[in-house]
Simulated scan of single mutants.
Amino acid sequence: MIHDPVMTIGNMIDHQELAFIGSVDSNGFPTMKAMLAPQKRVGLRTFYFTTSCDAKRTQEYQENPKGCIYFYDPTFFRGVMFQGTVEVIVASEIKEDFWKPENEGYFVNGKKDPNFCVLKFTIDKGRYFSNEKVDDFEVSEE
């Protein structure tokens, strides 16, 4: 059992450049995509990513909000998978908090671009793999 999941897993996540996010397509099959690490995380409960509203993954979350995130640390051969739900956020005041200048190459109208959105993952449970051991855990409100 992990002694302090928030510290152990959180530290691992904060050192990763990529995350893999999963969704369910319209035929009920899982799909996966690599993305840059989340722009923000709140404990192990909430993760925020930015993307396009017209992206395939975004559309899948709007049809079925079930999703997962996987982080992998190849140096120590460990990883964590989270399951939960995804909310697609298009509210200007929230999008503004997540805008970065490097997004300008993707969104010509800046932070007010209607195609710019935020994915908010709310996590319910996770599975951590390290040292050939697997720990399942629930994630509660923080």
Rank of each mutant, 00 (worst) to 15 (best):
D14Y: 13
L119E: 03
I89D: 07
N64D: 13
S140W: 12
Y72D: 08
G67R: 06
E93P: 05
T75I: 08
R45A: 06
M7Y: 04
A34E: 07
G67L: 12
N131D: 08
F116M: 01
D14A: 15
H3L: 08
N131I: 02
S130M: 08
F20S: 14
T85Q: 05
N115P: 05
G43R: 01
I123F: 00
F82R: 00
Y128T: 06
C53G: 13
A91R: 14
D4W: 04
I69G: 00
Y128K: 03
Q59Y: 00
D124G: 03
D14H: 10
T31A: 07
P30C: 05
F116K: 04
P74I: 12
V86K: 02
Y61M: 14
T31Y: 05
R45L: 05
K112G: 09
L36D: 09
L119F: 01
F20I: 15
F76D: 00
P114E: 12
D135G: 01
I9C: 03
T46I: 14
T122M: 02
E142S: 13
P114F: 11
I13Y: 03
F49V: 08
M1S: 15
I89F: 04
L36C: 04
V80I: 10
D113G: 11
I89N: 11
E63C: 05
F98G: 13
M32V: 15
T46V: 09
V86M: 10
V24L: 03
V108S: 13
S92M: 04
P38K: 08
K112C: 06
S52M: 06
C117H: 07
M35E: 11
C117A: 10
V134F: 12
K95V: 04
E60W: 05
C117G: 11
D135L: 02
D54C: 06
T46F: 01
F76R: 01
M81T: 13
N115Q: 10
Q62R: 13
R41W: 12
S130I: 06
Q62W: 02
F129I: 15
G67C: 14
V24K: 06
I2A: 02
D97R: 15
I21S: 01
M7I: 05
T46Y: 11
D73V: 14
G10E: 02
K112W: 07
Y61E: 05
V86T: 05
T75C: 03
A19D: 00
G43W: 01
N103D: 08
N27C: 07
F137A: 10
A91W: 02
D136E: 15
C53A: 10
E142W: 05
M1L: 12
W99M: 03
E104P: 09
K66S: 04
T46Q: 08
N103F: 06
F116Q: 02
P74T: 08
F116V: 09
E60C: 04
D4F: 10
F20K: 14
M35D: 09
F20E: 10
F129A: 15
F29C: 00
F77M: 09
M35T: 14
L119C: 07
Y106G: 06
A55S: 15
V108W: 10
Q16Y: 12
K112D: 15
H3Y: 06
E102V: 11
I69N: 02
V6R: 12
D124H: 00
I89V: 12
V80C: 07
F107S: 06
K111E: 14
T58I: 07
F82Q: 01
Q62T: 10
E93M: 02
Q39L: 13
P114M: 08
T46C: 05
F98V: 04
